[in-house]
Design a protein around this nucleic acid. Sequence first.
DNA 1: CCCGTTCATCGAAGCGCTTCGACAACTCAA
DNA 2: TTGAGTTGTCGAAGCGCTTCGATGAACGGG
Lengths: 333, 333
Amino acid sequence: MVKITDVARHAGVSPSTVSYVLSGKRSISEETIRRVRESIRELGYRPHAGARALASSRSNVLALVIPLRTGIHVPVVMRFAVSVVTSARRHDHDVLLLTQEEGEEGVRRVADSALVDAVIVMDVQLHDERLPMLRALDRPAVLIGFPDDTAGLTCIDLDFRAAGEACVDHLAALGHRRVGLIGSPPEVYERGTGYAERTAEGFLAAAARQGVAATVHPCEATGEAARELVKRLLDEHPDLTGVVVHNEPIVEPVVAAFRAAGRRVPGDLSVVAMCPDEQAEHAELQLTSVAIPAEEVGRRAVDLLMAKLDGDDVPPATLLPPRLTERASTAPA
Amino acid sequence: MVKITDVARHAGVSPSTVSYVLSGKRSISEETIRRVRESIRELGYRPHAGARALASSRSNVLALVIPLRTGIHVPVVMRFAVSVVTSARRHDHDVLLLTQEEGEEGVRRVADSALVDAVIVMDVQLHDERLPMLRALDRPAVLIGFPDDTAGLTCIDLDFRAAGEACVDHLAALGHRRVGLIGSPPEVYERGTGYAERTAEGFLAAAARQGVAATVHPCEATGEAARELVKRLLDEHPDLTGVVVHNEPIVEPVVAAFRAAGRRVPGDLSVVAMCPDEQAEHAELQLTSVAIPAEEVGRRAVDLLMAKLDGDDVPPATLLPPRLTERASTAPA
DNA sequence: CCCGTTCATCGAAGCGCTTCGACAACTCAA
DNA sequence: TTGAGTTGTCGAAGCGCTTCGATGAACGGG
């Protein structure tokens, strides 16, 4: 194994100089930098991560806690994760994967053992049992998702309340007078998930404000459940002309079900999806949608974490404004 | 931060004794073990991961390279990943997440810097460009998926060829005389993905052996593509009575499309899926299926890696035999 | 009762790096 | 021409742990 002393000898400098070339923490002459870099390249030197962590008390590793609960949409989770990994690499950090199963203990373990410098937690519940631990943690943490009480935490997410409102406002502007929200599976609401509840709140608030009749309908993420719900909706609300779907896997089945029921989309019935842009664009019918900006959220979560690691103050709450893109699934009532 | 010397002092022993209690590498008296454990608990001691890695040249971290290509089914990838993380924890290891984007360089980086002790690579192609690097790597690696040439490697996966055969054998035994394989998206075949090609080979080989007419059809993973393909299939092969679907997201749409075309399933047409048992069981129509044993593959990949880390010899190739479970989607022709 | 073993424990070295203080060599204003 | 800064580099300490060899105590066979 090539170590820093080998590089130092090869370049004719001291180990500390090599270290300073690598970290840039002291000024080094152009010429020396060149020689050291050349030696590093030639010898194929890689600093030993453990030694570095020990000496600097920085491991350059972040922990990412991913959710495993039922009712979550796995592809979206993966987008967040990939975005976090990619962003972390830009800051010269790696990402350790923790499953929710390991839970509190896992976070504490990797934090206390200095395996990681900081933590990102996904899928935070309104009353998340991990909050006390996260508040007490002696390492920076960023939550993706908003708990009820954000005091002492750093949180980031799409502004789901505003997103819910944006969908209704769009439909109302098109003249729709009765709208429905097809939401996440019931268990997601039952366990108090911020994004689901806040979307519903925004949806209902905007409807009230606009004088539009509105109802909220949790729905399992299966085609069958979607078809049944659509049937029931049309039965109970024959005047329904606008639907918001906040449940990625069943967007397509919902559209198909409305069509099967004889409704033209968007002729008779408009659909707004809340999903990643990619999904909205690749659907058979291009969907008017509010984007779930997983990439941006992941990136900014990492940026926040890096700022905290640098000792900077960061805003405790970051709500990304929703972006509604009009496509082919909505039309005037 | 509590360190080993603190524990040693508290327990009235030397640091090395504490270390030996923790590692079990030397015999220690019951009484001392008890006292040391008690001190560890009381002080909340956690060994510093970096220090440990430096002194022992073992980081107790594995790298997991996950795929990002198009055409792969994300939920299945996630199952592998979760299984790897869970299994690694059982062996007291953590998992570092690498994306395929980082590629070769990423693996080399974390291996050379001793950030990880070993590597698991998912979604290996038949002629994977990473193979030379993996062969040359000075750390153990296990591949999930089989390249064309496994020399010098350790690979594990479901035996997809046998799986393809099992599906046809099942259908043939039920008296079906013409069968079709609805496979992965075209790009998956184009880039030479082992599991897709081997399934098709097994499928065709068994059909030839059984004297059954058979065709293979790649299919994009969208409901629309599925519906089109089904229409075309029925057009071109009116005598088709058995279908194998090896493309998780479109299993349901395929069944729905056959029904929409007036075929009863399984009355007129039998469907065998290749998907996780969970998916087969939770479908509206319980699906006869060959299980994709993601959990087992992940677990055994980790077990193989641990064996290699212990210096044990391991089989270069592990093919898990397919398991076909008869459910409600297949019936006699 | 002595000596060779085994058992339990200790002390010290060393893993490869970062960082701090020191210092020689310059630079430049007074 | 001096003294105060600045720049570039070095040496050494130390991060917290594991591991090796040493050692004293207890044990048992001859």
